[in-house]
Design a binder for these strands. Structure first.
Length: 668
DNA sequence: AAATACTCAATTTTT
DNA sequence: TTGAGTATTT
């Protein structure tokens, strides 16, 4: 295998050759980031570096997958699979399974997702005299997460009650022998910080550290990476501050901005040649983002020629906006011989999708809602996983709570409380008291029968799961609990029931896959995968059909469309009403718009409307300040052009809107 | 325990 | 307007 250096531009070549020492690659949108990382990896392997020593960190499973695929294409699958390339969460999970005992915790821990966290926080709230029905636990969940990602709970919580709930929440996690997503990082960081021998082991194992999306790391992730790289200083960070859109989740741009300070002598390589979009799209995007302060100066230059100007569609109402966008999709599709999958409609909030969906359905155009209904978040999957979790970790009370009476077997809320109280009183995890004679004696007959049935099922399931194939034991469970009937009863439509059952079997299939690639497959191992795999698994029908993609601006990051629409470009959406109090927030909103704009390859449309229905009633809307900022580089839609395909009503409205649009800007 | 009625809140969501 | 979650009824 040899590197084809000619396939790289000079900046990319520099980035590929930079192997030793700290390197920051500033990779603008569409500048061939993945290609560069893949080539660099191949280059390293060619110089004799062991694949096992190159740690590759991404934030999403999807990114990890695509990275591995690209490297596979260059160095072959056998070598590529040996590279430890994973999300930072799964890296931490693996380190903790190996070494968490050094911190006095059980390596068999469960991983709690947001739903499990909420349940525990509810309990903790109730115990501290805060009624979870009157007080929404979600803001607390959010705050706790932020605290774990930035550190120091004592300072973060002003009132003692919140601090007490936070401490209780963590105690409950420990009782469940569980870690939440943030704990995975926090415990891993603590492990490396407090156990020098463990740190030395990983520093030695991972001689080269490579991090994607460096602009999105938080403080804990930074500490982790810093510790790993401290000794050898081989850290390769790739990112683009202009695409940092997760500040609200604790990501901090300080790290990418202070890279040279953290790693003195660092090399900076800028990738500015863009292979995705035409120049006029980039000009408008560059102009918009140049309004942000404190950024490293960067200007994307297209390798594809000038192309078309960015076009603004102004509509009278939200329905008209949807109609105008769809008219454009139809006319561009014919004009440029495109497929539906060449089009992407990008919006700020999920609620905006509905009106586009309705309009698309009405006109018989296929679409996919990207990011919706994540596979592992579906109820039937979580239920099934809860059985597996409880089998793997009998302390996992959150899982128990989910399944002890599902399918219904006569165990009511009262009885569940009794079980929990009993467990508390005896200082034992709930799962362990289920077969206690003293407890069973207090339960009514029907309930006792239910509990005994549940215990029997769990025993047999656990026993079967300890042998391979594990998939068979899950199939057995689905049969034994008769989920087919249960699901049919629970859903009003037969198709929904069928789909849910199919999803359960889909989970079994992924278990089969897992067992076929992992020699030492275990229930716990599979669960770890599942807990960290919150990606949607695209279903077969999504892949088959040619369809327009609908998604939020956040989920559009990393994607590209021949023709992209950034819709709802109004004050209130961009920037969002809830994110315009501080300049920091507005700048992040601007980056969000920038991410949306740079998704477009050949044509970019930006739309807005003068009135839209919100929470039931019509409200007036004004065009976004961001539109104003790029006004000099956009053209307004000429309704005449789409007349053939469009309803004539649209043409009239658009004409009047165009006038109004200009007026609105003059008002300012 | 399940079905139905009411109340309240509504940004984004890599794991 | 829609939905999630809770309270009330059957």
């Amino acid at each position: 295998m040899t590197i084809h250096w000619k396939k790289l531009n000079p900046a990319q070549r520099d980035a590929v050759k930079a192997v030793e020492g700290p390197v920051l690659v500033v990779a603008g949108a569409g500048t061939g980031k993945t290609r560069t990382i893949a080539f660099r990896t191949a280059h390293m392997l060619e110089t004799g570096i062991a694949p096992e020593s190159i740690l590759g960190i991404t934030f999403t499973n999807k990114a990890a997958r695509s990275m591995r695929e690209r490297v596979s294409g260059l160095v072959g699958r056998d070598t590529a699979t040996r590279i430890p390339l994973s999300t930072i969460h799964s890296l931490c999970a693996r380190m903790l399974r190996e070494d968490i005992a050094a911190l006095g915790r059980d390596p068999q821990f469960s991983i709690f997702d947001t739903g499990d966290q909420i349940a525990l926080i509810r309990t903790a709230m109730a115990e501290h005299g805060l009624d979870p029905r009157r007080n929404d636990p979600r803001p607390l969940q959010f705050r706790f997460s932020t605290v774990k990602n930035t550190g120091d709970a004592d300072r973060a919580f002003d009132d003692p009650q919140t601090l007490a709930i936070y401490n209780r929440y963590n105690a409950l996690l420990q009782k469940n022998n569980a870690l939440d997503f943030d704990d995975l990082l926090a415990f891993a960081a603590r492990l490396l910080r407090e156990r020098p021998e463990v740190l030395a082991k990983y520093q030695d194992r991972f001689r080269f550290v490579m991090v994607d999306e460096y602009q999105d790391i938080n403080n804990v992730q930074y500490e982790l990476l810093f510790l790993l790289a401290r000794a050898h200083r081989n850290i390769y960070a790739v990112g683009d501050e202009d695409q940092s859109i997760y500040g609200w989740r604790g990501a901090s741009m300080d790290h990418i901005r202070n890279f040279e300070k953290a790693f003195p002598g660092a090399r900076i390589v800028k990738l500015e040649r863009n292979y995705r979009s035409t120049q006029q799209i980039l000009d408008a995007s560059n102009l918009l983002i140049s309004r942000n302060t404190g950024r490293r100066d960067k200007k994307l230059v297209s390798a594809l020629g000038p192309g078309f100007a960015v076009r603004v569609l102004a509509a009278a109402s939200d329905r008209d906006e949807a109609a105008a966008v769809i008219d454009r999709i139809i006319s561009e599709k014919h004009k440029a011989h495109l497929r539906l999958s060449d089009f992407g409609v990008l919006f700020r909030t999920n609620a905006q999708s509905r009106i586009f969906e309705e309009a698309l359905i009405a006109r018989g155009i296929a679409y996919v809602l990207v990011g919706a209904a994540k596979f592992y978040e579906r109820k039937e999957i979580k239920d099934l996983l809860a059985y597996m979790r409880f089998a793997a970790n009998a302390q996992d009370a959150a899982a128990l709570d989910r399944i002890i009476n599902y399918p219904a077997r006569g165990i009511g809320k009262k009885s569940v409380d009794a079980i929990v109280d009993f467990a508390m009183a005896h200082g034992q995890p709930a799962g362990f008291v289920l077969r206690d004679g003293g407890l069973l004696a207090q339960l009514p007959d029907r309930t006792r029968a239910g509990v005994e049935f549940f215990t029997r099922i769990m025993d047999e399931f656990r026993d079967r799961s300890s042998r391979r194939p594990i998939a068979d034991s899950v199939r057995w469970l689905i049969e034994k609990l008769d989920f087919k009937t249960v699901l049919e009863k629970a859903s009003d439509d037969v198709n929904a029931a069928r789909r849910r059952l199919e999803n359960m079997h889909e989970l079994v299939s992924s278990l089969v896959d897992y067992e076929s690639v992992n020699r030492d497959a275990s229930l716990a191992g599979f669960l770890e995968n599942a807990a960290l795999l919150t990606d949607e698994r695209e279903s077969d029908d999504d892949l088959k059909e040619d369809s327009v993609a609908l998604m939020t601006l956040h989920s559009a990051k990393g994607l590209e469309f021949t023709v992209a629409f950034v819709v709802g470009c109004e004050e209130g959406f961009l920037p969002h009403d809830r994110s315009m109090d501080t300049d920091e927030e507005v700048q992040e909103e601007r980056r969000l718009m920038y991410v949306g704009m740079t998704r477009a390859m050949k044509r970019l449309f930006i739309s807005w409307c003068g009135a839209r229905r919100k929470f039931g009633d019509m409200v007036r809307r004004k065009p976004s300040r961001f539109l104003k900022e790029i006004e000099s580089l956009v053209e307004y839609d000429d309704p005449g052009e789409v007349k053939d395909e469009a309803r004539s009503a649209y043409a009239d409205i658009a004409k009047s809107q165009m006038e109004r649009f200009k007026q609105l800007f003059q008002d300012k």
